[in-house]
């Protein structure tokens, strides 16, 4: 029993990250009916930006190098101990790191939409897919050439000194896992409220139902799409930074597998459906954990892909989605 619960916890933590990435896929698909293959790279880029910002705030030698380029940055030298050792400082630092990573990656997402996808809006869907694949290849290799193939993610001292939280029996949860899980829940809840209640969210839903009609109602389609391409990558960036914090490393090709799995999650929940993506993310995470716990981790990816293929074939609408009729 304890074994099962521990696997469940492992799965939910992982699933939270999948859910964050899956939202990006599902948002874009809901509005443009397009699989944004490059979204996996948003996750990766977010991780690298998070890596840079965190280093800038907490790593003395990085601060020193940065100050040589831009003198005012040397102020970070004095804030560094506060950020790395105290609880308040740690929370503040994490907010800054996630904020910067999310905003920059969101802007990158908007830029990509503007230059790579907008010209293709009226082309066949396959063209957009190929373009997205190309963009993914480009971003990966850009990061590889500009930064490096593997970066060791710094662990803030405060976090390193925290002990695992015992729940009951031998069940315990690592502090970083707890942080990831709680943050994911908060973000997912906020996004859900935003889309269903706010004016912009309503515009997004209107656009996804009928672009032309929404345009006639006075909604600026282009800004709604741009907003979508901001929110998705921003959430992906949060997941990417969490990835670095949890696993200690960010690599240029780290996006591929989480990307495919998040896509699977989005499809499982019903692509285009926000709550479906969240549900799918957690489900995939738990399924993977159970599969690798009771069978073997070697076949974990095979199991995920098999789920994906089976769902696409037998219930393309997913768990919460409606089945889509192909129109002529």
């Amino acid at each position: 029993m304890e074994f099962f619960v521990q696997l469940l916890i492992d799965g939910l933590t992982l699933g939270g990250m999948y859910a964050l990435i899956a939202l990006g896929f599902t948002l874009v698909y809901g509005i443009l009916l397009m699989i944004n293959f490059a979204h996996a790279e948003m996750f990766m880029t977010g991780g690298f930006i998070g890596y840079g910002v965190l280093n800038l705030l907490s790593n003395e030698s990085t601060i020193a190098t940065a100050s040589d380029f831009f003198a005012p940055l040397s102020i970070l030298q004095s804030t560094q101990p506060f950020f790395t050792t105290t609880a308040l400082g740690f929370i503040l630092m994490m907010l800054i790191v996630f904020g910067v990573a999310a905003v920059l990656t969101g802007l990158l997402g908007m830029t990509i939409e503007r230059f790579a996808y907008r010209p293709l809006r009226n082309s066949p869907r396959l063209c957009a897919l190929i373009s997205a694949l190309g963009m993914s290849l480009f971003l990966q290799n850009f990061v590889l050439l500009a930064v490096g193939h593997r970066m060791v993610f710094p662990t803030p001292e405060f976090l390193a000194n925290l002990n695992a939280v015992p729940l009951f029996g031998s069940i315990r949860i690592a502090p970083i896992d707890l942080i990831i899980f709680v943050t994911c829940l908060v973000l997912l809840f906020t996004l859900d409220r935003f889309v269903s209640k706010s004016k912009l969210g309503k515009a997004m839903r209107a656009t996804s139902q009928d672009k032309d009609a929404a345009g006639l109602m006075g909604i600026n389609i282009n800004s709604v799409i741009a907003l979508t391409f901001f929110i998705g990558p921003a959430l992906g960036a949060v997941a990417g930074t969490f990835f670095g914090l949890k696993y200690g490393v960010v690599t240029f090709n780290m996006g591929l597998f989480p990307g495919i799995k998040a896509f699977t999650a989005a499809v499982l929940g019903g692509i285009g459906n926000l709550r479906g993506a969240m549900l799918g993310g957690f489900l995939i995470g738990v399924l993977e954990a159970l599969a690798s716990g009771y069978l073997s981790i070697a076949y974990r990816d095979v199991i995920t892909f098999a789920i994906l293929i089976l769902i696409l074939i037998f219930r393309p609408g997913g768990l919460l989605g409606e089945s889509v009729v192909e129109k002529v």
């Binding site: 699989i35 396959l126 897919l129 495919i260 499809v267 990816d301 892909f305 293929i309 696409l312």
Partner: peptide, 21 residues
């Protein structure tokens, strides 16, 4: 029965399944 973009993802998954197997 799959649509174009779903087909792409399925073939991707199939390629990985073959390699891992």
């Amino acid at each position: 029965r799959l649509r174009g973009d779903y087909l792409a993802i399925v073939t991707l998954g199939f390629g990985e399944i073959v390699r891992i197997t």
